[in-house]
Design a binder for these strands. Sequence first.
DNA 1: CTACTCCATACTGTATACAATGTTCAGCGT
DNA 2: ACGCTGAACATTGTATACAGTATGGAGTAG
Lengths: 225, 225
Amino acid sequence: MDVARTRLSLVIPEELARLLQEEIISGRLAPTTRLTEEEVAQTYGVSRSPVREALRLLERDGLVLKAPRRGIWVAPMTLKDFDEVYACRIPLEALAAAEAAAATDVALKDELPAILAAMRAAHGDGDVQRFFDADVRGSTVIYRLCGNITLRRLLAGLEKQALRYRYFIYARAPGAVRLSVEGTATIYAAILAGDAPRAKAETEALIGAIWRDIRPAMAAEIPAE
Amino acid sequence: MDVARTRLSLVIPEELARLLQEEIISGRLAPTTRLTEEEVAQTYGVSRSPVREALRLLERDGLVLKAPRRGIWVAPMTLKDFDEVYACRIPLEALAAAEAAAATDVALKDELPAILAAMRAAHGDGDVQRFFDADVRGSTVIYRLCGNITLRRLLAGLEKQALRYRYFIYARAPGAVRLSVEGTATIYAAILAGDAPRAKAETEALIGAIWRDIRPAMAAEIPAE
DNA sequence: CTACTCCATACTGTATACAATGTTCAGCGT
DNA sequence: ACGCTGAACATTGTATACAGTATGGAGTAG
């Protein structure tokens, strides 16, 4: 398919992983769906070689599960997995926020207000997709600010799993977005003020609050494990 | 090479990654060494396909760096990277220890004393390699105890980077091993007692102490970045 | 009707061939 | 002498062919 080839032109495995990742996070590729290399390859008009690499990348990010000689499936969404992701996010995102607050890259910090505005606007319009795009951009800015490449690597692997659950809930209960928007505003303020301990504490508080807030709805919609 | 093929018989990329990982952690493959796929393939008597997958795995674990179309290098050891790894280890290892303390798998917990004994014995003999083998086994037991698969995935990627620095220092200043042995004893005691908060606090204390303890020697031996 | 065996099939894993790109160094011009 | 250009080379990226294994269903025995 020529359209796919064009979009994949730079580095096929990474681009392919990004496309598949969007499918999985948005739920268009349902949990436990079987992915065969040949089918993915034909869908995107490439051979199995880059597909295999893309699937390894998705495995690294926890979006697919792989069993040797048996195949690959979209990772199931379970309450256990949800809890695990949030338990790990709290300390890691807090660490990232603290380092971001201590950073000196003013130009990068100045992007945060615009991102917050975009989140608010999307929230006002009830546009979940746009809210997510802004949210992801905000995370990216914080990761770049903190400059800890190792932490960035770890968070990249968590963020995608987390977004999957957040997308799932927000698409069903858009009201839950408000909690995220307001908490994000508080965190950005702390980062802009250069207050690392407060950025850390506010991040721990927000992620913990979101966790508690959406967990009951999650428990009603997905299996325990 | 037949010997290599035999050792690689199960799942070649994973086995290959494990062998290369040992080479890197032990320093036999020096930082910034260029790795060409063909050369690795010939060394182990396999084709480039599994080699490429193995190198992706090592990239995931932060042991090699990859630039598209340009090649792969053993990741450099720098003070910045060292600091990053330890900053991330503190909250993640502490979380793992806390969950391990709360676990109920008595059979698995009972393995800890033997592992501690092995660490002490290796320390007594000044055998760095054996100390590390025991240390890694201990980490594995804790990860299995805590049952948080997501956390396990994140730590697996950190542990290898961390071991590289620890191996580096211990091989030069074996006395630093004592700190690790005694701290580990305290943590294991907390886990066996089912005291999650103490396991968490002791782990934070130990990793922070090791960090501070070996950092000056590290600063003298490796570049800042 | 059930359970077990065996075979066909589909898919993953590995090897190899081919394409494309980055690097290096000789040769030329300034 | 120095810098630039370009072509040969080395190496990665992709496609395809082949090998080996897990799965599912037909067929048969109990």
